[in-house]
C-alpha cells in the first residue's frame, strides 16, 4: 500500500470524487425506483381488486345500480355501452386528428416559409399542448354542443378530444417530418419532382412511422381523458351503446368515475374491473404504435 508508484499522488482525491459519483448514481437510481414502484403497486392493486370481476358478462352487459348483478353468478352487468362508446369515440377522434394534425404539420413544415407568423403559430401550438383538458371541455361545450348544435353527441365528444390532442399530434408529426433527411428531398427534386411529388413519394413514407407513433400515443391519452367529455355531457351510465354520430354516449373513464363514487364497497371492485379494461385497451394501442414504428420503418 505504502509503496511509491507513479500514480500514488492524488489517490485520495480520486477516491473522494469517485464516492461523490457513486452517491449521485444512488440518488438517480432511487428516483427511477420511486416511479416504477408506484406504477407497479398501482397496477398490482387494481388487478387484485378486480380479480374475478372482469368476466365476459362484464364486457358485454350494460351497467346496473345493483352491485350483485356484476358478480359472475349475478344477472349480468358491465361496461359494454361505455366500452363501445370509447372505441367509437377514439376511432372518430383518430380520423379527425390524422387529417387535421398531419395536414397542419405538413403545411407548417413543408410549405410555410420561415416567418414571424410561422414562429408565432408554432409557439402557440406548443402552448396549446399545455392547456388543461377541462378548458378544452368548456370550449367543446361552447362550440360543438351549443353553437354548432351537435348536442351531447358522440361527434361533439370526438371533436373535443380532437382539439385536445391536436397540438401534440401536430408537434410530433412536425418532428417526424423534420427528421426526414434533406438529402432525400434533394434527390427527388434533382430528378424533376414537384413539391407535391416529393412530399407524397419521399417525405411522407419516411415520416409515416413517426407520425403514426405520435398519433397513436396521443390517442391513447385521449381515450383515458375524463374532464373534456364530462364537460360536453357524456352520460355517466348509459344502457345502450351509441348507434350513430349524433347519439348520446358514455365512455369508460366516465363509467369508472361513476362507479368509484358509489357508496357500496363492492363497487370499488367494479371500478377496478373497469380500470383493467381501460388499461388493457391503452396498452394494446401503445403496442400497436411500437409495432408500426418497427415494421414500417423504411430503413430497416
Amino acid at each position: 500500500m505504502s509503496t511509491e508508484t507513479p500514480f500514488s499522488e492524488g489517490t485520495d482525491d480520486i477516491e473522494r470524487k469517485r464516492k461523490i459519483g457513486q452517491a449521485f448514481v444512488a440518488v438517480c437510481f432511487a428516483s427511477t425506483l420511486v416511479g416504477i414502484v408506484a406504477l407497479v403497486a398501482l397496477i398490482a392493486d387494481v388487478i387484485y381488486e378486480s380479480w374475478g370481476w372482469v368476466t365476459w358478462e362484464f364486457l358485454t352487459y350494460p351497467p346496473s345500480q345493483v352491485v350483485e348483478n356484476f358478480l359472475p353468478d349475478g344477472r349480468g352487468a358491465g361496461i359494454y355501452p361505455a366500452l363501445v362508446g370509447s372505441i367509437f369515440l377514439i376511432a372518430l377522434t383518430a380520423v379527425f386528428t390524422i387529417f387535421l394534425g398531419v395536414g397542419a404539420a405538413i403545411y407548417l413544415e413543408e410549405y410555410a416559409a420561415e416567418s414571424r407568423l410561422k414562429s408565432f403559430i408554432e409557439a402557440n401550438i406548443a402552448n396549446l399542448a399545455g392547456v388543461p383538458s377541462i378548458v378544452y371541455g368548456l370550449l367543446g361545450l361552447a362550440i360543438f354542443v351549443r353553437a354548432i348544435q351537435l348536442g351531447t353527441s358522440l361527434i361533439a365528444g370526438a371533436l373535443t378530444l380532437t382539439l385536445l390532442i391536436l397540438p401534440i399530434v401536430i408537434v410530433s408529426s412536425q418532428e417526424a417530418l423534420r427528421a426526414v433527411p434533406d438529402s432525400q428531398r434533394q434527390a427527388a427534386y434533382g430528378v424533376g419532382a414537384t413539391q407535391w411529388q416529393v412530399i407524397r413519394d419521399v417525405v411522407l413514407p419516411r415520416a409515416l412511422p413517426g407520425i403514426m407513433t405520435g398519433t397513436i400515443l396521443s390517442l391513447s391519452r385521449a381515450i383515458g381523458e375524463t374532464a373534456p367529455i364530462l364537460m360536453v355531457g357524456a352520460a355517466t351510465s348509459l344502457f345502450v351503446a351509441p348507434d350513430g354520430l349524433t347519439s348520446p354516449f358514455s365512455a369508460m373513464p366516465m363509467m369508472i368515475f361513476e362507479w368509484a363514487g358509489h357508496p357500496e364497497p363492492e363497487f370499488q371492485h367494479v371500478a377496478a374491473a373497469g380500470i383493467v379494461v381501460l388499461l388493457t385497451i391503452l396498452l394494446l394501442m401503445n403496442a400497436v404504435a411500437i409495432l408500426i414504428r418497427n415494421r414500417y420503418d423504411p430503413r430497416s
Partner: peptide, 17 residues
C-alpha cells in the same frame, strides 16, 4: 421543368429506401 433537363448527383449517395 429545368431540373428535368439538368439532372443532379449529390456528394453523399442518397438512394431512396
Amino acid at each position: 421543368a429545368l431540373r428535368r433537363k439538368i439532372g443532379m448527383v449529390f456528394q453523399k449517395p442518397n438512394p431512396f429506401p
